[in-house]
Design a protein around this nucleic acid. Structure first.
Lengths: 341, 341
DNA sequence: GGTTTTATCGCAAACGTTTAAGTTTGGTTG
DNA sequence: CAACCAAACTTAAACGTTTGCGATAAAACC
């Protein structure tokens, strides 16, 4: 055993044709039971591993699902991925995980690779913007089905699994108001992907429903990036505009913002409360309590897989896109409270 | 454009053979410049994507590297993976990421899949135990080179990139002793993978060098699992054996142990200090200060890739296994300290 | 006993590429 | 002008599978 074992080699040893081996291994009743036994025994002994590429070339199925995820550092995403690959395996597929790092160029390469690999379907949490809409559309037309998770891609007509962002944002505001907060900052992009738009809409709706006036000065656009969030808040604090809470669109931003607030000497959450979406581990690094929207990422992932498998098995469903929305849950993290006996 | 475009189709349209298209796309100077232009233009227009499987079948190279990682929830691992895939891409490869979830059975399936995929090499952070040593050895013999990262696999003669676990553990003890800690628990497996053995050895050596007696009662075996760690500490506390610090072999364990200690009403770190390896986000969830060994996971990943590419390009290096050791850094996380102006 | 069935296997094409070797055409050389 | 050469393709085999169809022989049927 010093190079890869092939069907042909097994065939030669047993004095039959490769076809016989192939059929024997797949338990075709074209082949006698005894021959099957012999073949399987030899295959096991020689450590035979079928070549997926050769198989897929003819069978037109790879039983691989492409997964594109923004990054693996944010626990929300890694939980999604876990939901995906655990579920995928149950269906007899394998997940090919690719990271776009919130970068359209990377995502394009991911898509090109996955379509070159001829995966049976792609689960995607796409970057903001429409830079890749062309490739996405093309890839879909080539017969590769898509399901978008977390962030929906309505304009492309993909099936999707998302959360109730707008409603969740409203609930967050409600809770902040109940905590006597009155001047709530919104930190993050306000447009682009659906998630952002919905959260921003929820922010406005929440203010309205709770008798607070919308103040454009309290909306701070910033990129989805720690450093950028840090600097944005730092600059804002310099303006001396009073505020008592920051609603952040995600964990990275919440961490950067929280750090800036702490560095400025404020108390979280007494002076300024912070909230985020995703219940991300990284926010805990601040060591202060925070409010978060838990989005059941594992469930998002596994449901996206269910949807995809349905799509593959019954492409007719592709006609009308299906959108699943998962209900989120508000959580208050009491981190940093020292306990004593 | 409604199904996959192949070389053959392009050839038919341009009235040439598939071979011509293939060569044109790879800029062979077998083909005239104008033909090349025409071919490339058409390929772009039709959205042609080469079929990786067909290509790899003949070229015997996939330019894919398999990556096996214990999980993606622990930030140490996800950082390793980031180091890997970013580096891998620079070399023109793609990373196929698989998770074993610390489970030998999963890992076996991962290995079988990767070898079926005929990846050009496998980077592995293997599960404890030798359940898969057989497959690992076989897979290697079939011509797939291995590099182990984080955890080494000495007995199999794989190249490896690891950290200075033993020395790091000694430094941790040193620091704890400087903080007046005298009865230091060791929590986690003491044998199995190299990492565990080395940390345990460092624990003993550290005690010795700092004038503390080794007490087997202070060594608590437990699995690498939050719940298990929680229960282990909970049980230990019931015994009323005094202790003032816990050295945990990893983030999961540190989190479980820390929770148990807090639940029992103790103060961290004043009553009991906790330490871990990996600087994992999850420990921050406790909201208390902790001591950690930062292991430069990104560097571990990228160096493992360098090593692998070297191995692929020059298989002669396979003769004598190379072991790289990365120096770690001690960090004290001051989480949970409330700041005021 | 002739015919039909059944079991067991071989044959050969196909999947989409790559590549060494061959072919044709036209031009250059001595 | 014969001999050679380079340019620009084509041919065909190969990579490791799968699969429908055909072949053979033994068994079963009436």
């Amino acid at each position: 055993m010093s190079q890869k074992v092939t069907l042909k080699q097994l065939a030669q040893i047993l004095n039959v044709t490769p076809a016989t081996i192939s059929k024997a291994l797949r338990d075709s009743n074209d082949i006698s039971i005894e021959t099957r036994k012999k073949v399987k025994a030899l295959a096991a002994k020689m450590g035979y591993r079928p070549n997926i590429m050769a198989r897929s070339l003819v069978s037109k199925r790879t039983f691989m699902l492409g997964v594109i995820v923004p990054n693996l550092q944010i626990s929300f995403f890694s939980e999604c991925v876990r939901g995906i690959y655990e579920r995928v395996r149950r269906y007899g597929y394998e997940a090919i995980i690719m990271v776009n790092d919130e970068n359209a160029e990377n995502e394009r390469k991911n898509l090109e690779f996955l379509s070159s690999l001829a995966v049976d379907g792609i689960l995607i949490d796409a970057v903001p913007g429409n830079a890749n809409h062309g490739i996405l559309k093309d890839t879909q037309k080539m017969g590769i089905p898509f399901v978008s998770y977390d962030r929906s891609l309505d304009t492309l007509g993909f099936n999707s699994v998302t959360i109730d962002d707008e409603h969740a944002a409203v609930i967050v505001i409600e809770k902040l108001v109940a905590d006597e907060k009155k001047r709530i900052l919104y930190l993050g992009p306000t447009s682009g992907i659906s998630v952002l738009k919905n959260r921003y809409a929820g922010y406005q709706k929440g203010l309205d429903e709770n008798g607070l006036a919308f103040d454009p000065d309290l909306v701070i656009p910033c990129e989805i990036d720690q450093i950028n969030a840090y600097n944005s808040i730092k600059e804002f604090i310099k303006k001396n505009i009073p505020f008592d809470a920051v609603m952040c669109v995600g964990g990275m931003i919440a961490y950067g913002a929280g750090k800036a607030i702490l560095d400025a000497g404020y108390d979280i959450p007494n002076d300024i409360a912070i909230t985020e979406f995703g219940d991300n581990d990284i926010v805990a690094r601040l060591g202060v309590p925070f409010l978060t929207v838990y989005q059941y990422p594992y469930k998002i992932g596994s449901m996206a897989v269910d949807m995809m498998v349905g799509l593959i098995d019954n492409p007719a469903k592709h006609k009308k896109p299906v959108h699943k929305i998962i209900k989120s849950k508000l959580i208050y993290h009491d981190i940093g409270i020292k306990r004593k006996l």
